[in-house]
Nucleic acid binder design. Structure first.
Lengths: 385, 385
DNA sequence: AGATGTACCGGGAACGCTTTCGCAACCGCT
DNA sequence: AGCGGTTGCGAAAGCGTTCCCGGTACATCT
């Protein structure tokens, strides 16, 4: 009844246990173990709809897959007629190269990863658009990860990018990122990394920044010129250069204009909406409140405006406000928010350009580009005299 | 001098052409062609820094890669000690599975694609966040494409997603998308597709929408209740359901309240900022301008507010305005914009949930979910009487 | 005519992983 | 001892590409 798969023997077959739910037999003559192939599967297991491969093109044309591959990638070693036939057939069969297989074969994915803390505000989206405008023409597509201002998510993101075998990474870190082991992993694996805007110290990578110090200085200087003397700073996290440099610019401007620095006028937030609100309230509830506030970024400054308005504080006469970044909403809110515009598009483009350079030449040393900001004066700080 | 690679013969060797720059030899005895292997490469070709693979783990532990694979994926057929050893070693070597290889082997990428027209406004970002909150826990990561309101880019996006062998796609189409062949490709390839918000007709897929008709109706009804009689509509493109349904809601509300429909009060835009501005100007420059405008979305309504303000038109008394979507800026602008809030987070979540369902069971029929909007009344439409 | 060179194409290994299946070792029961 | 069953591991076949290199059919040069 049961026949040995090898020798065809029928009698010397004994059952020999059950493996993975299937009866197993043993042929004594040829010492061969085997199970009966399940008869159902060949038809049932419909192999999931299949996208066309170079093998499909090859067999349609009765040529080898090597030839198809060469024709497709414009290799020279191929007859012009063959190439045309292949290209036609590829089009006809709606062929899309399998990027997974390509990546595996070439050990590169033609993908770069972008890690940003969020993309609700239009700050990062504009940078991403700039980045794509450089990456796509260069033959790379991007995979965007948002860490949601959470270190844990950021680490998960780096792992996903590692696993996806991205060829390079650009990143702007979370407000709570202090350790940077998860970024060093890229370097250990030889994957180029470029950071922009929100960088943290101690990582020897290329960087694209705006001149936060200078921008902060000019913003505060502008407030001083408007006659403000009790200038507060709604500051950012000090583990980020952004936070540090803007604070430094603030302090230096005060010093250069011989204004006193009051500790209670410097409060910190972690760049979330709620923490910005708390910080703004803390400033405005002071026994002697400030006559002006320099906010670490526009969202923070906007929250300050809203709270001040709800308290009936008149802007800019009782309270002048300056932000940083020039979010689109800053032009719409009333009063318009004075702020420092950053060249977002350019940040994205230079960052990716740096990355491309490092990807194609791994001897390049890290470089840093510092872009200028532009002071945009609006009603929130403009006192009539 | 030259020795045949095969038979070792030295005398019967003749040169036989040059291939790819290298001298080729021919052994007469064994009829074998060969070239001298270049001696430089073995050391030079440094094989590009290598991330650790299961083979590395296997050879470190002196076991087979099958065992490592099984241990890593928590397969049952494995000894607990072996598993521990593998897991330890994996951690120690900082192993990250190669998603490209995994995808190739399993014929699925554990990736879903998201196509959106833009992510400058916070509308789509919020939806994307909701989508990720469902996709990630289910073991999928997402790759985000923005078509930039261009059909050409949208088509390129679909090709990239096809090539990346995504397991499923969610999409919101461009304002200029009329043909849908590029989306039908997904269906032909058996890749589930779910559309949200901006859908177009003629595609038999699951959809997640808000009740645009109802929202528009209630928005216009609200204007009528404020005493407006000459109500204009800054309408969206009519190839999109969004555009059609909101127009229909507008018309039905007018009809139900016995208000006349003036053709010149209905102007169309393609959802870009500049076309919205042009449409708004056209309406406000009419010989007999409208007393109120229902905008197809918030960005359009906000542009209308700005233009009206620049013309010195008083809002809401001379011109009442209602938008659609409840963008964050709509609360900040003055006057606050009356609008219809959409449950963005929920849209993202249900869309991906539908997709997950279809991905794990391909017999599921397309379904449609219609979510409700909520009228948020602000100063832009609230007339004091 | 034979040697040399050119143009093209096919075979097959490799990329890193999953998955099927063979098989040895062992255990408990007659 | 012999059978039924379990546990755990290894070998090898893919998945869809690229790329190296062998090989044939000609053309060209002595």
């Amino acid at each position: 009844m049961i026949k040995c798969n090898k020798c065809g023997e029928v009698d010397a077959i004994a059952k020999s246990g059950i493996v993975r739910g299937k009866q197993r037999y043993h042929c004594k003559r040829c010492e061969y173990y085997f199970t009966q192939p399940s008869l159902l599967t060949p038809e049932t297991h419909h192999h999931r709809r299949h996208q066309t491969t170079i093998m499909d093109i090859a067999s349609a044309l009765q040529i080898s897959k090597s030839t198809v591959s060469r024709a497709l990638q414009g290799h020279s070693d191929i007859n012009e007629n063959t190439r045309k036939a292949v290209l036609d057939m590829a089009h006809q069969l709606d062929y899309q190269p399998n990027l997974l297989a390509l990546g595996l074969a070439k050990s590169r994915s033609y993908t770069i990863g972008i890690i940003v803390p969020e993309f609700i505000n239009s700050f990062f989206p504009y940078i991403i658009i700039g980045a794509q405008q450089v990456a796509n023409p260069a033959g790379y597509h991007v995979i965007i990860c948002q860490s949601n201002e959470s270190l844990e998510t950021e680490i998960a993101n780096t792992n996903v990018l590692m696993a996806s075998r991205v060829d390079g990474v650009v990143a702007s870190v979370t407000a709570e990122t202090k350790s940077l082991d998860h970024f060093q992993k890229f370097q250990r694996a030889g994957i180029p990394l470029v950071m922009f805007n929100r960088i943290c110290d101690g990582l020897d990578v290329s960087k694209v920044l705006v001149d936060d110090y200078d921008g902060a200085y000019r913003g505060v200087e502008h407030l001083i010129q408007q006659g403000c003397t009790r200038i507060a700073h709604l500051a950012g996290p000090q583990n980020l250069q952004v936070g540090k440099q803007r604070l430094r610019g603030y302090l230096d401007a005060l010093r250069d204009y011989n204004l006193p620095v009051y500790d209670e006028l410097i409060v910190y937030c972690n760049l979330t909406k709620s923490s910005a609100q708390a910080a703004a309230r803390q400033l405005l509830d002071l026994p002697t409140p400030p006559d002006s506030i320099f906010g670490v970024n526009d969202p923070a400054a906007i929250q300050t405006i809203l709270i001040a308005k709800s308290k009936g504080i008149s802007i800019p006469n009782d309270l002048a406000i300056v932000g940083f970044s020039n979010e689109p909403t800053s032009a719409l809110i009333e009063p318009g928010l004075t702020t420092l515009a950053q060249p977002l598009d350019e940040i994205g483009k230079t960052t990716v350009q740096f990355l491309l350079n490092e990807m194609e030449d791994d001897t390049i040393l890290p470089q840093t580009e510092i872009l200028k900001t532009q002071l945009i004066v609006r009603a929130s700080s403009l006192r009539k005299r």
